[in-house]
Simulated scan of single mutants.
Amino acid sequence: MNWNWNETSIDLPHSFENLKELLNIICRKENKFSQYEFAKWCDNLTMAFDDDETEELNEFDNIAFGIAQDIECQWDLFLVNTYSLEELQNLDLSKVKLPQDWFIEWLKQLNGK
């Protein structure tokens, strides 16, 4: 099988526990990676699990899978709803930041709160 993996500077295996750890780092504002890198990492995580495998996941993993999908989707939606096509063509994506509240909410969901 040939995956279309995104290159990312985040050198962590694609696991749901690492998703939680990365969200913790972002919520503490200790990330040395851009949110763009994180969105690509989340996209890679979702690609690592196809629809057939998600049915076999436990409840935590299913929630984490949904959150990873949401992060990747919200990143794309934020870009198209915030910037014009011309701006996007010249935008340094590593400088784009989603609202911090979103990351806090995703972490709360992941923690079951």
Score class of each variant (00 low, 15 high):
residue 1 M to Y: 02
residue 2 N to V: 11
residue 2 N to W: 08
residue 4 N to H: 14
residue 4 N to C: 03
residue 5 W to I: 14
residue 5 W to Y: 13
residue 6 N to E: 11
residue 10 I to H: 12
residue 11 D to V: 00
residue 11 D to T: 04
residue 12 L to P: 02
residue 12 L to Q: 14
residue 12 L to E: 15
residue 12 L to C: 11
residue 12 L to I: 12
residue 13 P to Q: 07
residue 13 P to L: 06
residue 14 H to E: 09
residue 15 S to V: 02
residue 16 F to H: 13
residue 18 N to S: 15
residue 19 L to A: 08
residue 19 L to S: 06
residue 20 K to F: 02
residue 20 K to M: 07
residue 20 K to D: 07
residue 22 L to P: 05
residue 24 N to K: 15
residue 25 I to A: 03
residue 25 I to K: 12
residue 25 I to R: 08
residue 26 I to Q: 10
residue 27 C to R: 05
residue 27 C to P: 07
residue 31 N to S: 14
residue 32 K to M: 01
residue 32 K to T: 10
residue 32 K to R: 12
residue 33 F to E: 10
residue 34 S to K: 05
residue 34 S to D: 09
residue 35 Q to M: 06
residue 36 Y to N: 04
residue 36 Y to V: 01
residue 37 E to K: 08
residue 37 E to S: 14
residue 40 K to E: 07
residue 40 K to W: 03
residue 41 W to D: 07
residue 41 W to E: 05
residue 41 W to L: 04
residue 42 C to I: 14
residue 42 C to G: 05
residue 43 D to V: 04
residue 44 N to S: 02
residue 44 N to I: 00
residue 45 L to W: 07
residue 45 L to G: 01
residue 45 L to I: 08
residue 46 T to S: 14
residue 46 T to K: 11
residue 46 T to L: 05
residue 47 M to K: 15
residue 48 A to G: 13
residue 48 A to Y: 09
residue 49 F to P: 07
residue 50 D to E: 06
residue 50 D to G: 00
residue 52 D to W: 12
residue 54 T to Y: 04
residue 55 E to C: 08
residue 55 E to W: 08
residue 55 E to D: 09
residue 56 E to Q: 06
residue 57 L to V: 05
residue 57 L to P: 12
residue 58 N to I: 07
residue 59 E to G: 00
residue 59 E to N: 04
residue 60 F to P: 02
residue 61 D to G: 00
residue 61 D to A: 08
residue 61 D to Q: 13
residue 61 D to K: 06
residue 63 I to L: 09
residue 63 I to Q: 01
residue 63 I to T: 11
residue 64 A to I: 02
residue 65 F to M: 05
residue 66 G to C: 01
residue 66 G to D: 03
residue 66 G to L: 00
residue 67 I to N: 04
residue 67 I to G: 01
residue 69 Q to G: 06
residue 69 Q to I: 03
residue 70 D to S: 09
residue 71 I to Y: 00
residue 71 I to L: 01
residue 72 E to Y: 12
residue 72 E to L: 02
residue 72 E to I: 08
residue 72 E to V: 11
residue 73 C to N: 09
residue 73 C to S: 06
residue 74 Q to V: 13
residue 75 W to L: 02
residue 75 W to T: 12
residue 77 L to S: 12
residue 77 L to N: 09
residue 78 F to N: 00
residue 79 L to F: 08
residue 81 N to T: 14
residue 81 N to V: 06
residue 82 T to P: 03
residue 82 T to C: 02
residue 82 T to S: 13
residue 85 L to D: 15
residue 85 L to C: 10
residue 85 L to N: 14
residue 85 L to R: 13
residue 85 L to G: 09
residue 86 E to S: 10
residue 86 E to A: 11
residue 87 E to N: 03
residue 87 E to M: 12
residue 87 E to V: 11
residue 91 L to T: 10
residue 93 L to Q: 13
residue 94 S to L: 08
residue 95 K to P: 04
residue 95 K to H: 08
residue 97 K to C: 12
residue 98 L to I: 15
residue 98 L to Y: 09
residue 98 L to G: 09
residue 98 L to R: 11
residue 100 Q to K: 11
residue 102 W to V: 15
residue 103 F to C: 00
residue 103 F to Q: 01
residue 104 I to P: 00
residue 104 I to S: 06
residue 105 E to D: 14
residue 106 W to H: 06
residue 106 W to A: 11
residue 107 L to F: 07
residue 107 L to I: 10
residue 107 L to E: 10
residue 109 Q to R: 15
residue 110 L to D: 05
residue 110 L to T: 15
residue 112 G to I: 13
residue 112 G to F: 14
residue 112 G to H: 13
residue 113 K to H: 02
residue 113 K to P: 00
